[in-house]
Amino acid sequence: MAVRWRNVVPLLALLVFAGADMDWSKCPQQCKCKWVSGRKAAECTNSSLNTVPDNLSTEIQILDLTGNPLRELPKDAFSLVNLINLHKLFLRDCNIEDLHKEAFRKLEILIELDLSGNRIHILHPGTFRENVRLRILTLSRNPIQKLADGLFNNLTFLQTVEFSDCQLSHIGRKTFMNVPNLKTLALDGNNLTTMKVESLQSLHMLNGLVLHNNPWNCDCHLQAFRDWTIERRLYAQPTACAEPPVLHGKLWSDFEFGRSCLQTPDTLSCTQEQQLK
């Protein structure tokens, strides 16, 4: 028995030493590790990091990398460094241009992701496929031009999506499929001229839709969507028209479409000017 204990004691000492060495609060020099709102957080802001730190504890739940020149997020950017227990991830103003569609793979309990103020041009369908618990997604101030079909499919916990001040000119009809809890969608400050009702009509919980500061063309192509926002009480000032010239600057609620704004299977045609209220 004594022989056995002589073998066990060194092993226990080694385990104790290893556990102490793995203390989550022992951060690399560029970061500060502390409790934030009851979660284990690593704040690594403005630290000249060009890659995701590989020496943080796997217990970290909040990671803030704001202001670092990351430039790209490759495949498995966080799971490869064992940061798979993240609840909140902040990547604001990181000069990110290349976002791999599997950069956030295995982050299955992520609830908030902020990618605002980067240089992301393209969001690939499936980018957030494994982030099944995601609730808040912020991508404002990125030069994104298109939200493709399938981008947000089956994100059943998603509640808030922000694309303010991007360069959006197109949103697919199947961009938001099976996103039953989306409540707030911000699309202000983009290049949207028209929109199809089909793009958003499945969002039955939507109660906040921000659309101002877009060059809306208030012709018959926009009629169904404009009417839908008003009927659903989603319209909010100062959403206004840029075109046609007769309606430039007019709020959506200040005019009615004429009866000759007729819809056909393939196109919409306008044969009568819109009527000001």
Rank of each mutant, 00 (worst) to 15 (best):
I96M: 14
D21W: 13
P215E: 08
P10G: 04
N154G: 06
L86I: 02
L211P: 03
T264D: 11
N85S: 05
L110R: 00
F176R: 10
A242C: 03
N55A: 07
T194V: 11
N178C: 05
E97Q: 15
K277R: 11
T51S: 09
L86S: 04
L182K: 11
K183L: 00
N142P: 08
K101R: 10
T267G: 05
S79V: 01
G172I: 13
F17E: 14
E130G: 01
F157Y: 11
F176D: 08
V3H: 14
D54R: 10
F157P: 03
A103S: 10
K277S: 01
L206D: 13
F128H: 01
E162W: 05
L206P: 14
D114V: 07
L123M: 00
K26N: 09
P10K: 00
L234K: 10
C33K: 10
F225K: 03
V16M: 11
N68G: 00
C241G: 11
E59K: 14
R226K: 09
G150E: 07
R233M: 05
D23A: 06
A224Q: 11
Q223K: 11
F163W: 00
L83I: 02
K277L: 09
N118S: 02
N118P: 10
P215S: 10
E108I: 07
H212P: 01
L73H: 07
A41N: 06
L209F: 07
S37Q: 15
K88N: 13
N82C: 11
A103Y: 06
D93R: 03
L185D: 12
E130Y: 09
